[in-house]
Structure formats: structure tokens, C-alpha cells
Simulated assay, not measured.
Amino acid sequence: MTALRPERDSGAAPVGAADDGASYGEQPYEGFGAWQGQQGRQGYAGTGAGREGASYEQQAPQSSYEATAVLPVLSGYEDPETYEAPDRRGAFAPRDSETVALRTVDIEGMPRAAERAGESSGPAPGGRAARRKAARRQGRRHAGRSQTAEKPAGSAGAAPLSRVEARRAARARKPSAGVIASRVLGELFITTGVLMLLFVTYQLWWSNVRAHQQADRAAQHLQQDWASGKREPGEFEPGQGFAILHIPKLDVAVPIAEGTSKSAVLDKGMVGHYGEEGLKTAMPDARTGNFGLAGHRNTHGEPFRYINRLQPGDKIVVETQTEYYVYTMASLLPVTSPANTSVLDPVPKGSGFTKPGRYITLTTCTPEFTSKYRLIVWGKMVEERPRSKGKPDALIR
């Protein structure tokens, strides 16, 4: 802060100034205009550098500092306690409305003095309120820096990682052997489940669709041959169809083929005749004997699925090229071993028949969807009707 000059304190006239009857110290202060006019008459009194009679504007100041130091006093900053010298650019800070303290002026392109001061270790200038504001601003800056420092690697604005840190981050991102093994095991389980679901769908649905189509084509082929008068010999090749089985109660009409091969007969939706050596049974036109048939209970057309529902007296009809053979259901064996071949004997054991006759035996797996045991149904022929006489009553609805 610049103090008043000694000449003004003592009341003495400046050196080299014209005396118009009153000393400088005795002249009343009438504001800047009055003082400037008076100086125009007396001339600027400094250190002797001014010319007597010259105006204040015509005299150049001795230094820029002295001219600048006087301006605050002439601009109304009379109180020495609240006045501070302007900065090096000549700008004055306004008073704070709360503490009557000075605030720094933010000039575009230049850093603020309070911010520079806040970044240093010294206290913020001004009163208590100004120091609080500077502290809050400084806290916000530090908080922003800390948030930037806490940003994860790879994010925008984050500092680049060193080689060691980058390698560690890459290893951390790489899955471990346990994770890879669990993923592979999970994929295997999912694949196995999908395959099992497809297999079940094929067995329970698609196999039936395919078998029904194949059985229907075989039945149509037989009927066309019979209608054309094509004669078939008494012996048939394995897989060759030669008759049609009707079970009216169960709404079953399925071709009968020679043999019990799964691939050639049973899986195609047809019923197989036990004609192989060791399990060879009689044909329907035999005078005595047991006509044995096998069929699927589940899947592949499942023609014998509901034969367990047959009751004594229900009709079973075998249709050939020349005859209808009508049987009446006689008895049922719910469970027996697959090795029990005695059920196919000419007089089957367990059937209730006691003497030779013309019998029919139906065999299938049990329980459903398994092949652990066999279910047996027996019937006895009650009618032989030529095709020329029309269908038997059992097939007329």
C-alpha cells in the first residue's frame, strides 16, 4: 500500500510550484475536479521534473508505479485499511459483499490468483467467507482428480497401464482351467440333453408316423394284388406280407408279414408271424395248430399297445386272399418270461385249452416302454368265411 507523500502531510508547498497566497496543505480538498483544476494553475509538483504552469495532464508521471498508486485514492478508495494495491496489470479487485474483503478478478486467458494461491500451501487471501469459498473450490478440484484416478484401466481418461500391469490384467481376464472345464462339462450336458430329447421325440412320435405310413402302403399293396387276382404261394419269404389282422374293439387293421425281424417287419408297423425254425407256428388255414403273432406295444406303430384290454368273447379276424378267419378271445397271461416259448405250442400252456384245435396267440412286451416281460393273449377260431361271401359280422359296423 502506498502512503501519502510527505509534502502533503506537512502542508508545505511543492518545490518549484507558484505560490498564489496559500500553501498546498492549507488548500481545501474539493474532489478530483477541483484538485485537477488547481494543479492546472500551479503545475505538477513532484521532484522538480514538472514545468511550472503546466497542467496535470501535460506532465508525464515520473514512473508508472507512482501514477497508478495515486489512482485508488482519487477513485474513492480513501480507507487505507481496506485498500490493496492493484495487480501488475492495473486491475482492481472488487470488495466482497460479506466481509468487505477483496476478491480476485478472473480475466479471460489468465489463471485466477485465488486458485493459484489455493493450489499452494499458503492460506487463501481475503476474509473468512473468501477462505471458505476457496477451500470449497479446492476440495471440488481434488475430488475430481481422485475420481479420475479411480477410473478403471481402459476407460476414457485413465492413465495408461505399464507392461506389468497390462500382463496382470490380461491374466486376470483369462479364464482359469476350472472355469474352462465347467464350461465344457456344461456344454456336454446340454448337448446330451438335446440329443436325448430328440431321441425320445423320434421314438414316441416320429417312429409311429413312419411305421403307420409303411404299414398302410403294405396293406394297400396286398389288397391291390388280391383285387387283381394275383395268386400267392403257400410259403412266404421273410418280410413278405400275406394277410391282414383286424381287432375291431381296438380299431386295429395291420398287415401280417412272415418272420419277427425288427428291422424288416416289426419296426415297419407290421405284425410278424412266428415262422422261423424253432418257433415255427401253424398258418391260419391249417386244420389244427397255433397261429402265433408278435407286435410292438409301444413305438413303431404300436399295433398291440392295448391288447391287454381285450375281454373273453371279443373278436379277432385274420383276412387272407381267399378267406376270413374269425377267432374269439379266450384268455390272457399278463406277465411271463421272454424265454417262455411254451405259449406257442400247438396246445399252449396256461391258455386253458386242453386238446388240439385252431388257435391264435398274440405276444407283446410288458410293462409299457420296456421289454422285460411278455404279455400273452389267446383266441380260438369260431368261423372260417370265404371272401366271396362278404365280410363276417365282426367287421360289419
Rank of each mutant, 00 (worst) to 15 (best):
K380T: 05
Y65G: 12
S337V: 08
S371H: 09
T191A: 15
G118D: 06
V105I: 11
T328Q: 10
K133C: 11
K380P: 01
A12S: 15
A113Y: 06
M381R: 03
T191K: 08
M381I: 01
S207G: 05
V318Q: 03
G352N: 03
D267K: 07
A54W: 04
T201F: 13
T341L: 06
T370W: 02
L266R: 01
L71W: 15
G21F: 13
T336K: 06
G295K: 02
T354I: 08
Y324Q: 03
Y325I: 02
R5K: 11
S75G: 13
P392N: 07
I247R: 03
G90I: 08
G90A: 09
Y324L: 05
R137D: 04
T354E: 12
A257Q: 00
T361K: 01
E119Q: 11
P72G: 05
G126K: 03
G295R: 01
A93I: 09
Y44N: 04
L71K: 13
D106T: 10
L310I: 03
D20K: 11
L375K: 00
L204I: 12
G118N: 04
K372R: 13
G139Q: 10
T68P: 10
Y56Q: 08
A169I: 02
A85G: 11
F92P: 03
Q39M: 14
V100E: 07
Q39H: 11
Q58E: 13
T366A: 03
G37T: 09
G90F: 07
M283P: 06
W35G: 03
L250G: 01
A166H: 05
G241S: 04
Q138V: 11
E277V: 08
Y306P: 14
P160R: 10
R95Q: 13
L266D: 04
R128F: 09
V343R: 02
P284N: 00
H212A: 07
W35P: 05
L344D: 00
Q223D: 10
Y325F: 14
E98S: 14
Y202M: 10
G357T: 02
I107L: 15
E52M: 14
R387S: 09
S146C: 10
S351D: 05
A12C: 15
A60D: 10
F32K: 04
R131T: 01
V209G: 12
S63P: 08
Q240N: 06
G33W: 04
A91P: 09
Q38R: 15
G350I: 04
R5P: 13
L188P: 13
E81Y: 08
E30H: 11
T281S: 01
N340C: 06
S207W: 00
S55Y: 00
T192K: 06
G126V: 03
E81D: 14
P175N: 14
P175R: 13
R51P: 12
P312V: 07
T82G: 08
L344S: 02
T192A: 13
E52A: 15
A153M: 13
R140A: 08
A215Y: 04
P152N: 01
A243I: 03
S261R: 02
T260I: 05
D314I: 04
S120F: 13
S263N: 15
S64M: 15
R387P: 02
A134N: 02
K315H: 06
T2P: 10
Q214T: 15
R137M: 02
D20W: 15
K280M: 12
G241T: 01
R217K: 11
F369R: 10
A286I: 10
W378P: 00
W205I: 15
